[in-house]
Design a protein around this nucleic acid. Structure first.
Lengths: 216, 216
DNA sequence: GTCAATGATCGTGTATACAAGAATTGCGTT
DNA sequence: AACGCAATTCTTGTATACACGATCATTGAC
């Protein structure tokens, strides 16, 4: 419980939103949250203000906080930006790769291979996350890494949905292979191009996304 | 005063930080701020929490808030990301340009031309900002536009410093011309490339930045 | 003389009280 | 029966009070 109730609440509520426990559009009542978590309204408000600043909820003056519903189009836009940032991270990684980062990428990559081979989409979901994080870190840009991690968190639920799509696991992994090759070869432009394509939602993948969002 | 003291304070303190009224590293005392703005500590705290979430200040538990000092290297990283986002906005703008956006870009572009010709770096600073915002808007991606605007705000002070460098005005404007041409020609890749180069801090421009940051 | 420990003081973290605005419900009128 | 107005209630916004932790200074010991 992190020494600070406000911080803790922020993470707690954030997780609840991202795990869809609080649905988009739902109103977050300060008093309800306060009693639910056994604290007063003050830290709850502070948590809500932070979530508002991050963009997860919207606080309408005198009218309470509601969970923001991104909607398919906005989620698409977010993936578009994510693709761009990951592309940059990949190109930096290709240029700046050092031993430690190389090993981290190799390790997470082979874990992805195992889960993909086993067809375990939940395990792959987790390993895939670690793989991408290893690339963020390899870029050696703290700011970029933070931005990537933040956006990654917000898109996490949708990434998970995407993996459920048929054949996505093996497709995803073979894309990973090409990305790793490009980064290890020091080919920044290629790594950027491949990561953009890997993360972005082109063509039928958008309708897949819409379908899986509607399915919830 | 925006109907909401917390919001108002957030903007007020944010501006004070960005305009360097509160120096990096400086400690922000809640009580002092409260009396200074004639309010109680509660809205001050809420404002600070938001600024912390945005990344402008850091709140260390039980030890108060301090203004974050990005340092040259981190500022460089931020420009790197900004360049990438603006590149994306430019490429989208080239593909999706409509009449209204085209007119907005033309209008702000010609205003830049005038201030550049007049050698008025303060006017150019403002017009340049509007020009870039017109491109963000032309990309037709709300999320991307928000991200660009947010990062732009944080980098605003440094952009201003950069314009003070000798010849930067005319160089900047001629780069604008090429960017406008690419966007109007519908050449997304070229617009992206030019914007990345325009916004990013390559070569000697990094030392210019460091010098101007040190000069404050 | 310097370093450490202990107490005082100051500032943050949380709770609660109070005020003001928005929503809802009930009553009256058409 | 439906619409509108008013009053009540519920929720948010702000202030204040209190408690706990951190920092700093002072004093004592080595």
């Amino acid at each position: 419980m992190s020494e600070n109730v406000g911080r803790w609440l922020r993470d707690e509520i954030e997780n609840s939103i991202l795990s869809n426990e609080f649905s988009p559009g739902e109103r977050l009542d300060e008093t309800v949250l306060a009693t639910r978590f056994g604290v007063s309204r003050t830290p709850v408000r502070e948590a809500l203000m932070q979530l508002d600043a991050i963009g997860l909820i919207e606080i309408r003056p005198r009218r309470g906080a509601i969970v923001i519903d991104p909607g398919p189009h906005r989620v698409y836009e977010m993936f578009e930006v994510m693709a761009e940032l990951e592309g940059l991270a990949g190109s930096l990684a290709a240029r700046r790769l050092d031993k430690a980062s190389r090993e981290a990428i190799t390790a997470t990559h082979s874990r992805c291979e195992q889960s993909a081979a086993a067809g375990d989409s939940d395990a792959y979901y987790y390993d895939n996350e670690e793989f991408h994080k290893a690339i963020y870190a390899a870029g050696r840009s703290e700011f970029l890494e933070e931005q990537c991690l933040q956006l990654h968190r917000r898109l996490r639920p949708y990434r998970r949905l995407q993996l459920r799509v048929r054949n996505r696991l093996s497709t995803s992994f073979s894309e990973h292979c090409a990305i790793v090759d490009a980064i290890f070869a020091g080919d920044g432009d290629e790594a950027r191009r491949l990561l953009r394509a890997h993360v972005g939602i082109q063509g039928e993948r958008f309708s897949d996304l819409v379908a899986s969002m509607a399915a919830r």
